Simulated scan of single mutants.
Amino acid sequence: MLVTEVPNALPGGSSLLRNEPVQARSSARLSGLLDAAAAVIDEIGFERLTTAMVAERAGASIGTVYRYFPDRIAVVEALAIRNTQRLAEHFVTALSESGATTWQEACDALIDVTAEMYRTEPGFRAIRFGDAADTGTGDSEDRMAALGSTVAQILHERFGVPATERTARTWVVLAEASHAVFARAYRDPAAPDTGLVEEYRTMSRTHLEAVIASS
Rank of each mutant, 00 (worst) to 15 (best):
T137I: 09
Y186N: 02
Q85D: 04
G160T: 06
D134A: 15
R67V: 05
I81G: 04
A55W: 12
D131I: 05
A191S: 12
D131Q: 10
I127Y: 04
T101F: 06
A88K: 00
E20C: 09
Q23T: 15
E198C: 02
P162R: 08
D193W: 02
E157N: 11
R125G: 12
H156T: 11
I41C: 02
T206H: 12
A190Q: 13
L17V: 07
L110V: 03
S178E: 13
V113N: 03
E105V: 00
F46A: 11
A126Y: 02
R72E: 13
L174R: 12
V22D: 10
A191R: 15
A210F: 07
A52F: 01
E121P: 00
A58H: 09
I44T: 06
W171T: 13
V197W: 02
S61H: 10
L208T: 05
L95G: 03
T170F: 14
T164F: 02
P189I: 02
V22G: 01
M203L: 15
E77C: 12
Y68I: 09
A9R: 13
L34Q: 01
E56D: 15
T135D: 15
N8T: 11
T120G: 02
R18N: 15
N19Q: 12
T114N: 08
V161T: 09
S96F: 07
T170Y: 14
S61E: 07
A52H: 05
G123S: 04
E77W: 01
D42H: 08
M1I: 05
R29S: 11
Y68C: 08
L30K: 03
F129E: 03
R67T: 13
Y118G: 07
L95W: 00
A185G: 05
D142L: 14
I73G: 12
A163D: 14
A38M: 02
R169E: 14
R18F: 03
T167F: 11
V6H: 05
S214P: 01
P189M: 06
R187F: 10
E47D: 12
A28W: 04
E209C: 11
P70S: 09
G123C: 03
R158Q: 15
A58P: 09
Y66C: 07
